[in-house]
């Protein structure tokens, strides 16, 4: 049961990454592009979760029920994920700001219709 769950999680991470990447490549609208990027990002959440997961153990919140020092799910990967969320939220916010500006300047958010430098 447990290996099957972990394989499924790895498969889900890879799937999310690829489908998000496909979305970025085929995107015809900048908002769609930003959202595809967050799909790619969510693959890292799944991967981090499964790496820190310990079957049958509780969440690492050492308050009433759980004594400090007893076994729990690995909290480090959750800290990593939180950092990841913060950093990527910044990047996506920047991208959305750029999207608004592009739309204001060019009147469209289709990356193919914006005046671009080539070559």
């Amino acid at each position: 049961m447990e290996p099957a769950l972990s394989y499924a999680a790895y498969a889900a991470a890879i799937w999310l990454f690829l489908i998000g990447l496909y979305g970025v490549v085929k995107s015809r609208h900048l908002v769609n592009l930003c959202l595809s990027l967050t799909v790619v990002q969510s693959s890292t959440y799944v991967l981090l979760t499964i790496i820190g997961y310990r079957p049958g153990l509780p969440a690492p919140i050492f308050t009433d029920g759980l004594k400090p020092g007893s076994a729990a799910v690995d909290p480090i990967v959750q800290a990593l994920m939180l950092t990841d969320v913060v950093v990527e939220a910044t990047v996506v916010a920047l991208l959305l700001a750029i999207t608004i500006k592009v739309h204001r300047d060019a009147g469209t958010a289709d990356p193919d219709k914006v005046d671009m430098m080539r070559g």
């Binding site: 970025v24 981090l48 990593l80 990047v91 592009v102 300047d105 060019a106 914006v114 005046d115």
Partner: peptide, 26 residues
């Protein structure tokens, strides 16, 4: 819009690269 395009390409490609790095770290 050209300078926005430069910034956008920079952000998207680098971020996706960084995701792979994060996966490697994990």
């Amino acid at each position: 819009s050209q300078s926005l395009q430069g910034a956008l390409n920079f952000a998207v490609v680098n971020t996706i690269g960084a995701f792979l790095s994060l996966m490697g770290v994990a």
